[in-house]
Amino acid sequence: MSVIVTSVIIVGAIGIMAAIVLYVVSTKFHVDENPAIEAIESLLPGANCGGCGCNGCHDFAVKCATASSLDGLNCPGAGEEAMRQIASITGLDAGDSTQCVAVVKCNGSCDIRKTNAQYDGEQSCAIKASLGAAGDACPFGCLGCGDCVSSCKWGALSMNPVTGLPEVDNVRCTGCGACVKACPRHLIELRPKGPRGMRVWVACSNKDRGAEARKECPVACIGCGKCSRICPHGAISVEHNLAYIDPASCRLCLKCVDSCPTSAIHSVNFPIKKKTDE
């Protein structure tokens, strides 16, 4: 019985002494932290994705709390609502932000892409890219090992097993840009999400001359320039045998999509057109 009593007393005494020490230390070394930082950080997703350009979410919160203006500070992961709340905490105006979303600029799905050799090494895009064309006829296209998928902290990317290409989930994608950095072929671009998610882009990155590009992939952009001629807004430029649609001037008229001879221009989230008999 006495053993229990003594051990309770000893452990209790140690506990009280430790509590005193901790109390003294915490008062002596107390750091006054801006309460705004904690409040801002609680609004952030905590994914440390780096999409804002800071070293993690805490760093971003510190920058927001100490900044004199929120211009250029934008957390793509938290969304506009959270940015408005951050603005109200700091008492500043929220900076302009365009919600971006990742698009994949390759459309060479498994059934149509041509291959010259078989790759049976490690499944990593980075390794495949270091080997040259890595078996595909097209040296610019998607490598299909999913480096982008593993880089995505939001679960917005997935490999489609049928096409062998990554697919972007519109809702989950925050436009943080981690996949853009992960892709060794630079196939992923951040583009404005567009009204109701409607957007148009050239789903190809092949810079070879038309005839060669055609040989490599039937849905490659051959740089014919038809789209740039037909575009009424002058949004399309062709450089290095590859068309590029400038999202700032594109008005989503879809003329280019219909004009592309290789169907290299993609559009998503447009209402389905009613079929008209001509």
């Binding site: 010259n116 040259g132 064309a133 595909d136 006829a137």
Partner: peptide
């Protein structure tokens, strides 16, 4: 001009 080398790289 551009040709492809043995590893498929231009």
């Amino acid at each position: 001009g551009m040709v492809k080398d043995a590893y498929g790289k231009p």
